[in-house]
C-alpha cells in the first residue's frame, strides 16, 4: 500500500544573532545552517493497518507524514502509494488520500459546513449518489448532519474536527493521514474521533497513519508503532512486541501484614514503604507466581497486584536514547 524508501529531508536555517549589532550583521551576512529533519527513513505499510508515529517535538514525525501526504517535497528518497510516487504524480495519487492536520482546518471559516463539503464534492468529482451515501454513513458514526448547516466559525473545536474528518473522507480515500488529531479536544470528542477511526478502518479497510502525543490514542488505535527521534527510526513494530522489547519487565506490588519485607530470587525490590513493597522482575527470568511463592515462604502476604510497563514508559525510554 505505502512504501517509504530512503526518505530524507534537509532544512536550511538562517542563524540570527541577538541584539542591535546582530541585527545589523544579519542584514549583511546571514549565517546558514543545515538541519537533517528526516534521515534515511524506509518502511512499508499494508492496506488496512493503523500505524502510529510517535516521537518528541521536532523529532521529524510531522515532516515524515507531510512528505507521505505530498505536502513536502523530499530532499531525496521517495514515497509510493499504491506503487505511484506521490511527488511525481501528486494530482492522481492524492485522490487516494485524506488528510486531517490537527489545529488547522480545510473548512471555509465564513460559510456553513455544508458549503465546504459541496466544494470538495466538486473538487473530487464525487457524484451525488456516492456523496449522499458517504454523508449518511459518516453521519451514523459521527452525527454530522446536526451541524452541517452551522457556520464553521461558530463551531467548537470538537465540532470543527468532526467536520474536518468528514471532509477528509468524502472521496472515500484508501489512506487517511492524521497529524495530532486529538490535540486540544475534550474527552467526548476524543472518544468520538477514536471510534470514527476504528469504524472506518473496519468498514472501509482504510489505512490510517497518525502522529500523536496522546497515550490513549496509541493504546486504543495503533496496532503498529513507528518511533522516530532526531529524524531517525528508533523502533518499528507491533505495539505489544515493542513493549516486550523495550520494557521486558513487570512490577509486582505486594502488601504484607507487617513492615518487614523480604528479598526474593530473580527480582529486585525497587520501593518499600510501610507494609507495601514493589519488586521489579524480567519476564524472561521468572514469573510473578514464582516470586509470590518464594516470598510467601518468608513472610505472610496480604495482597498482590501486577503493574505492566505502560506505553508512557516506552516513550520515556525511547526518547531517552
Amino acid at each position: 500500500m505505502i512504501d517509504v524508501v530512503n526518505l530524507c529531508k534537509d532544512y536550511t536555517l538562517k542563524r540570527k544573532e541577538p541584539g542591535l549589532k546582530g541585527a545589523f550583521k544579519g542584514l549583511v551576512n546571514p549565517g546558514i545552517e543545515k538541519i537533517h529533519a528526516v534521515a534515511d527513513l524506509s518502511f512499508h505499510i499494508d492496506a488496512g493497518e493503523i500505524v502510529g508515529f510517535i516521537g518528541p517535538n521536532g523529532a521529524g514525525k510531522s515532516t515524515t507524514i507531510k512528505m507521505m501526504s505530498g505536502i513536502l517535497t523530499p530532499s531525496s528518497g521517495s514515497v509510493l502509494i499504491n506503487g505511484a510516487d506521490i511527488t511525481k504524480h501528486r494530482k492522481e495519487v492524492v485522490r487516494n488520500i485524506g488528510v486531517v492536520f490537527g489545529q488547522r482546518t480545510q473548512l471555509n471559516w465564513d460559510l456553513r459546513l455544508g458549503e465546504s463539503f459541496e466544494l470538495l464534492k466538486h473538487i473530487y468529482q464525487i457524484d451525488q449518489k456516492d456523496y449522499d451515501r458517504t454523508i449518511d454513513e459518516l453521519d451514523s458514526i459521527l452525527g454530522i448532519k446536526e451541524i452541517i448547516n452551522q457556520p464553521v466559525r461558530q463551531m467548537s473545536l470538537g465540532q470543527r474536527v468532526k467536520g474536518d474528518l468528514v471532509a477528509s473522507m468524502l472521496h472515500s480515500p484508501k489512506v487517511l493521514f492524521l497529524d495530532e488529531p486529538t490535540i486540544g479536544l475534550d474527552v467526548s470528542s476524543k472518544y468520538a474521533l477514536r471510534k470514527f477511526i476504528k469504524e472506518i478502518n473496519k468498514l472501509r479497510q482504510t489505512t490510517v497513519i497518525l502522529t500523536t502525543h496522546d497515550l490513549g490514542d496509541i493504546q486504543e488505535l495503533c496496532e503498529r508503532l513507528i518511533i522516530i527521534n532526531h529524524g531517525v527510526m528508533m523502533e518499528d513494530g507491533n505495539l505489544s512486541e515493542i513493549v516486550d522489547r523495550i520494557a521486558p519487565y513487570k512490577t509486582l506490588v505486594v502488601e504484607f501484614y507487617d513492615e518487614k519485607a523480604p528479598e526474593a530470587n530473580f527480582c529486585e525490590m525497587i520501593e518499600h514503604s510501610g507494609n507495601i513493597a514493589k519488586y521489579k522482575f524480567m519476564k524472561k527470568d521468572t514469573t510473578a507466581a514464582d516470586i509470590i511463592a518464594d516470598l510467601s515462604k518468608r513472610q505472610t502476604i496480604k495482597d498482590v497486584s501486577i503493574e505492566e510497563a505502560g506505553i508512557d514508559d516506552i516513550i520515556k525510554i525511547a526518547y531517552g536514547h
Binding site: G70, K91, E92, F101
Partner: peptide, 17 residues
C-alpha cells in the same frame, strides 16, 4: 502559515486552488 498544505493534498492545480 502552511496554508498550501490543503491545496497540495487535493487533486487539482495548486496555483488554481
Amino acid at each position: 502559515e502552511g496554508d498550501f498544505d490543503r491545496y497540495l493534498t487535493r487533486p487539482m492545480s495548486v496555483l488554481y486552488q
